[in-house]
Design a protein around this nucleic acid. Structure first.
Lengths: 347, 347
DNA sequence: AAACATTCCGAAAAGGTTTTCCTTAGGCTA
DNA sequence: TAGCCTAAGGAAAACCTTTTCGGAATGTTT
């Protein structure tokens, strides 16, 4: 038999019209104005009346329709999160931080993945604007600057991870240079002097920045980089293995390798094991990203650099939420990284 | 100098009131009714008039306020995605699939992470309902059944990855048993007969299911599992290493190891390398999850089981969107897995 | 020229909530 | 008892769009 439209069963109740404030007011025997005030604790309403309203609301399982409230207030209580690689590793912590910061209050997160496609991004942007998001966080897939999402956006925009090319915009990025410097300093601190650097593609700003940090720390210590230049390649374990072999063949006295990512570091560890070298006894190894499954799954566990992306996301959201009322401060803000020391450098 | 409220500069324009349909209509010299029809291509409106309206809309950069439209239609054009481990590996592909399915049309995704906290989940649920989501996808962090999100939800709910304990609900889960069977069959097909199984905690349904699949395939071939029982432990590389050592010490003639996850498989590979065994010559190894960075970063690359979570997410969203108009079909639907063959089994 | 059909446009209601006054009733003071 | 004040509740506007229905103007037919 076909489903009735008004049974008590599961799918049927679904179609029931949701109760409105009018229903609550009628049940409590008051006007909708009074009902509204009672529910929101605003205005002067007699305690007895208020209780009646609350009971009535409870009874019909009243849920205020935020669509109506939003229409009135002109705000949706929503922030749009425009990401470009959901699958990637960097959007997620940022997303969590943003969700964290906004979820506590009245804000929710509307998610869009542009998949790196500009057309798609423009479309998503239009949708989000049409939905009257109160603000926008744009997350890049790498730290290379990206074009501004548009100059005439009627809501504040914060760029996270990848900064905007426009100095008018507000961007939050991790301090990759500092991270490279810090982790190199850590190696210097534990007495390493023949330090090599293996990292990702040279045309990634993240790789270049980290390499610059490494160079700065070594320069300050008056030491050269083993092989003089970083080995640029790919963000993969395979490249880590290859590059480590290259380094060790040419410079067997290398006593530390700074890697541009945890994945590269894993490859390097592999190559070192293959040669029966002791880590960190013979060669210390460091990663970058503090990608948990890689950094703590390895043997030994990796000393690495944590960019604190969740904090970055939270800050981005907080800044954005503040910017809904106050003007947004333009410019690029860099967030410090921190070195997480584990057994790959601390014997 | 303090920022003016009406300059042409960036932060100033932000505060400008957004143009409404009324503005467009006034500029085009028509009524708002006509403007609406012209913009939406509905009703009979003269081409010249329509053009005037379109030009006017363009001029003031009109973006329709979906809040108003939604209030009128009673639908928000939004689906809520309630996840429980954003950080985890399984929510993301599902999220992508859902976003994919809904993004094409008029639907957007409202994201909430309950972080595994029931209180928090109830709160998020209330918020989503208040925002009048048209439907809900609930994503679990593992395949263990989870309590229904509530019986009196006024919108359709689809459970993805983790099924609901209530048979009244609609759930979509990967076929872990089938996956275990398939990958074991693959090993049998390439001639392996002494097969061991190393997997995660016994109280994870995913581990138990996969083990059951392995047992079924071996049973059908009339073969015992090496060591008779699966080695349950943790979803970590460390456990993979430990367990592989245990197996090989006790059963040196083992010629294949089915692992419950790619991480475990990585640990197993490590242990095999340590013993200078050839993979897959001496021992073939398989993973589970097809987690790209693990499965293709290893040496050799891992044969593994792909649960096609993105498809699962897309199906969940499609089913949900369909359910907004039609009744939702209850029950648990399992989605087949597929074996991805790589060098760890194909010499 | 009258009746009619067709085409195009506009007035108004609806959707659910919040907020701003305004009204009413009761209590208080002089 | 008259005047005033306060507390409590209600009417109605506002938010913006969509849609229905009716009206006006033009063109067509007898």
């Amino acid at each position: 038999m076909p489903a009735q439209s008004n049974g008590g069963s599961h799918p049927a109740t679904r179609r029931a019209k949701r109760p409105t404030l009018r229903d609550v007011a009628a049940l409590a025997g008051v006007s909708i104005a009074t009902a509204s005030k009672a529910l929101n604790g605003r205005g002067a309403v007699h305690p007895d009346t208020r209780d009646r309203v609350l009971v009535a609301a409870e009874e019909v399982a009243f849920t205020p329709n935020r669509l109506a409230r939003n229409l009135l207030s002109g705000r949706s209580g929503t922030i749009g999160l425009l990401t470009n690689d959901l699958i990637g590793r960097f959007s997620i912590p940022i997303l969590m931080g943003a969700e964290d910061a906004s979820g506590t209050g009245e804000m929710s997160v509307l998610l869009c993945d542009a998949r790196g496609d500009a057309i798609r991004e423009a479309h998503q942007l239009k949708t989000l604007l049409s939905r009257r998001v109160d603000g926008l966080i744009v997350v890049g897939s790498d730290t290379d600057p990206r074009p501004s999402v548009g100059e005439k956006i009627p809501v504040p925009v914060v760029y996270a991870y990848a900064p905007s090319t426009s100095p008018e915009d507000c961007s939050l990025v991790p301090d990759n240079i500092g991270g490279g410097r810090q982790v190199t300093q850590h190696l210097l601190d534990i007495g390493r002097t023949r330090i090599a650097h293996i990292t990702g593609p040279a045309d990634f700003l993240a790789a270049a920045d980290r390499a610059q940090g490494v160079a700065e720390a070594l320069g300050a210590a008056g030491l050269p980089l083993v092989g003089d230049r970083p080995l640029y390649g790919a963000w993969t374990e395979a490249w880590g293995r290859t590059a480590a072999d290259t380094i060790l063949d040419r410079f067997p006295d290398t006593d530390a390798i700074v890697c541009g990512s945890d994945q590269v570091a894993r490859g390097v560890l592999d190559a070192l094991h293959e040669r029966d070298l002791d880590i960190p006894g013979d060669v210390a190894v460091t990663g970058f990203d503090n990608w948990d499954v890689f950094a703590t799954g390895s043997r030994p566990r990796l000393t690495t650099v944590d960019m604190d992306l969740e904090l970055l996301g939270r800050l981005a959201a907080e800044r954005l939420i503040r910017a809904i009322d106050q003007p947004l401060d333009a410019g690029i803000t860099t967030l410090p990284c921190r070195v997480v020391v584990r057994e790959s450098t601390a014997g």
